[in-house]
Lab assay of single mutants.
Amino acid sequence: EINVTSHGEEQAKHWIELAKRMNLDVEVEIHGDKIIITIK
């Protein structure tokens, strides 16, 4: 399980695309200006 804290939408999209390509599950939480991505 990987937790990524992203401070930008572009960076977040990059991680989500990467996870989808690798067929991994992704959870995205938004806390103000921080985007927390959990890849399982």
Rank of each mutant, 00 (worst) to 15 (best):
T5W: 01
I30E: 02
D33R: 05
H14K: 07
K13I: 07
A19R: 03
N3G: 07
V26P: 00
T38Y: 03
Q11Y: 13
I2E: 08
K40W: 06
H14P: 02
I36D: 02
M22T: 03
K20R: 04
T38Q: 03
I39V: 05
G32Q: 08
A12S: 04
V26L: 05
E9S: 08
E29W: 05
K20W: 14
A12F: 13
E10F: 05
N23K: 08
N3P: 09
H31T: 07
S6I: 15
I36P: 00
K20Y: 14
V26Y: 09
H7R: 10
H7W: 14
A12K: 12
M22N: 02
E10S: 10
W15Q: 13
N23C: 14
E17M: 02
E9W: 15
H14I: 15
M22Y: 09
W15G: 13
E10Y: 03
D33A: 06
W15V: 13
V28E: 00
K20Q: 10
G32S: 10
N3K: 14
I2P: 04
E29K: 10
E17W: 09
H31P: 01
Q11N: 12
K34V: 11
K13R: 07
K34Q: 08
D25S: 12
K13P: 09
K40T: 09
I35W: 03
I37A: 01
T38A: 02
E29R: 07
I39G: 00
V26A: 02
V4D: 04
T5L: 03
I35M: 03
K13D: 12
E17P: 08
G8R: 05
I37N: 00
E27S: 13
L18Y: 04
L18G: 03
A12G: 05
E9G: 05
E9L: 14
V28D: 00
I2S: 08
G8D: 14
A12N: 14
K20L: 15
H31A: 05
K34S: 08
V4R: 06
G8K: 07
I36H: 02
I35E: 00
G8I: 15
A12M: 14
H14G: 06
W15P: 14
G8L: 15
T38D: 01
S6R: 07
D25Y: 15
K20N: 10
L18D: 05
W15M: 11
G32V: 06
S6H: 12
H31N: 09
T5D: 11
L18K: 02
H7L: 10
L18P: 05
V26G: 01
H7I: 13
T5N: 09
W15N: 08
E29Q: 12
S6D: 08
I16G: 06
K34H: 11
E1Q: 11
G32P: 08
A19M: 12
K13V: 07
G32H: 11
L24I: 09
V4T: 06
V4W: 04
I35T: 02
H14T: 06
E10V: 07
I37R: 00
V26R: 00
L24N: 02
E1S: 12
W15L: 13
I30A: 02
E10W: 06
I35H: 01
W15S: 06
E1I: 12
A19Y: 06
K20C: 14
A12V: 13
V4G: 07
H7A: 11
I39T: 01
E29H: 09
I36E: 02
A19K: 02
R21H: 14
K20M: 13
M22S: 03
H7S: 10
N3D: 07
K34I: 13
A19W: 09
I2G: 09
T38K: 06
E1C: 15
E27G: 05
N23D: 08
K40F: 05
T38L: 04
E29M: 12
K34G: 03
L24P: 01
I2H: 06
G8P: 08
E27A: 08
H14R: 10
K40D: 02
D25W: 14
E17V: 04
L24T: 01
I2R: 05
K34W: 13
Q11R: 08
I37S: 00
K20E: 10
I30G: 02
I30S: 02
N3E: 10
E27K: 11
I36V: 07
V28Q: 00
E1H: 12
E10M: 08
V28A: 01
E9A: 10
H14F: 14
H14E: 07
I36N: 02
E1K: 10
Q11M: 13
N3Q: 13
H14D: 12
Q11L: 15
E27F: 11
H7M: 11
G32L: 12
I35R: 00
M22K: 01
D33P: 03
N3T: 10
D33V: 04
E9M: 14
H31F: 10
H7T: 08
E9C: 15
K20P: 13
E10H: 05
E10L: 06
E27H: 12
K34N: 05
K40A: 04
R21A: 14
I39D: 00
I36R: 03
E17Q: 02
A12T: 12
L24Y: 05
K40E: 03
H7G: 05
I16E: 15
S6V: 15
E17F: 05
V4M: 09
R21L: 15
E10N: 07
I37K: 00
I36Y: 02
T38P: 00
L24R: 01
L18W: 09
E17Y: 03
I37F: 01
Q11I: 14
K34E: 05
L18F: 06
I35C: 04
R21S: 13
I30D: 01
W15F: 12
I16F: 11
V26Q: 00
D33T: 06
D33K: 09
